[in-house]
C-alpha cells in the first residue's frame, strides 16, 4: 500500500498527526477529569469548550481585552459552568448514570445555542493566545507557534493532573470518592465540595481546550462536537480514568488520521478515518478487558 513515500513525507505526516492528536487530547482531559470523580461521562465538555471559547472571542476580538485577560475570563466562565454541572450531578446522585450523561448532553446543546446567539452568523476563528504568526519548518510541513504552544500546554496539564491525582492528598480523596463515594463520605471526605470542585476543574479544562482548539478548527459548535467525539475515542483507551493514557490515545487517533490523510496510503474517500476507527475499536476492546488493571494506573 505504501507507494514511494519519502522519509520527509512520512515525517511530515507524523508531525501533522501529532498536532492533530493534540487537539483531541486537549478535549480529552476534561472528559477524564469529570469521569475521575463520579463515573459520569461528561458530554457537557463540548458545550463548555464552545462557551469558554465564545467568551474568549468576545473579550479579545470584540471588547479588545488583552489576550491573557480574555483567556482567564474564558477559563473562569468554563469553571463556573462546570461547577454548576457538578452541583446538578450532586442532586442526581440517585439517578442512573446514563440519564445524568444525557443531562450533560442537554447542557452542551444549551451552551451551543447560547454561543450561537452571541457569535456572528459566520464562522469565526479567535486569535491564538500564542500569537497568530511565527513558527518553523520541519520536513515538508510548517509548525506554528500556536501548535507548539498547544502541545506544550497539553503535556503540562496532563502531567499536572496526573501528579495531583497520584501524589497529593486531594488526589487520594478524589480516588476514594471514585472507588466508593459512600465510604468516602463516612470517612469525612466532603463529597459535595469535591464533586463540584472537580467538575469545575473539568469545565476550566474544557474551556481552555476550546480556546486552544478553536483558532485551528474555527469556533463552530458542531466542529468542536466532532473533535470531542474523537477525543472521547482517545480517552477510552485509558478507560476514561487516566490522563496520560487519554493523551496517548488521542495522539494515536491523530497519527492515524495524519498518515492516512497525508497521501501515504490511499484508502479512498470516506475511509481516511478508518485508522482512527480501528484505534477506537482496539481501545474499547482493550479497556473493556483490562479495565480493572487500568483503574489503578494513576498517571
Amino acid at each position: 500500500m505504501v507507494i514511494g513515500v519519502t522519509a520527509a513525507v512520512f515525517e511530515s505526516a507524523v508531525i501533522i498527526g501529532i498536532f492533530t492528536g493534540t487537539i483531541y487530547a486537549m478535549m480529552a482531559l476534561g472528559i477524564v477529569a469529570s469521569f475521575r470523580i463520579n463515573r459520569v461521562v461528561n458530554l457537557g465538555i463540548p458545550g463548555l469548550a464552545v462557551f469558554g471559547a465564545t467568551v474568549y472571542f468576545e473579550m479579545s476580538n470584540v471588547w479588545g481585552a488583552p489576550v491573557l485577560v480574555a483567556l482567564l475570563g474564558g477559563v473562569a466562565v468554563g469553571a463556573l459552568f462546570g461547577a454548576i454541572l457538578g452541583l446538578c450531578n450532586l442532586k442526581m446522585t440517585a439517578w442512573p448514570r446514563g440519564f445524568v450523561m444525557i443531562f450533560t448532553l442537554t447542557a452542551s446543546l444549551f451552551l451551543f445555542g447560547w454561543s450561537d446567539k452571541i457569535l456572528p452568523p459566520i464562522q469565526v476563528s479567535p486569535a491564538s493566545p500564542f500569537g497568530d504568526s511565527g513558527g518553523f519548518k520541519v520536513a515538508l510541513t510548517y509548525v506554528s507557534n500556536h501548535q507548539i504552544g498547544t502541545f506544550i500546554t497539553c503535556i503540562l496539564v496532563t502531567l499536572l493532573m496526573g501528579f495531583v491525582v497520584s501524589k497529593t492528598r486531594i488526589g487520594i480523596y478524589v480516588r476514594a470518592i471514585y472507588d466508593d463515594g459512600d465510604s468516602a463520605a463516612t470517612l469525612g471526605i466532603p463529597l459535595g465540595y469535591f464533586v463540584v470542585g472537580v467538575w469545575a476543574v473539568a469545565g476550566a479544562l474544557a474551556a481552555l481546550a476550546g480556546i486552544l482548539v478553536s483558532p485551528r478548527v474555527t469556533l463552530d459548535p458542531y466542529l468542536i462536537l466532532f473533535v470531542t467525539i474523537w477525543a472521547l475515542a482517545g480517552s477510552i483507551l485509558g478507560g476514561l480514568e487516566s490522563f496520560g493514557i487519554a493523551f496517548v490515545g488521542s495522539i494515536l487517533v491523530g497519527l492515524s488520521q495524519g498518515i492516512l490523510g497525508g497521501g501515504i496510503i490511499h484508502l479512498g474517500p470516506g475511509l481516511e478515518n478508518l485508522g482512527a476507527i480501528a484505534v477506537v475499536a482496539i481501545a474499547v476492546f482493550y479497556a473493556g478487558v483490562k479495565r480493572r488493571d487500568l483503574a489503578h494506573i494513576q498517571t
Binding site: A13, G17, T20, T141, G258, G261
Partner: peptide
Amino acid sequence: PDESQHVLAM
C-alpha cells in the same frame, strides 16, 4: 478539524 494532512497530500 485540520487539513494539514491534505495539504501534505497535495
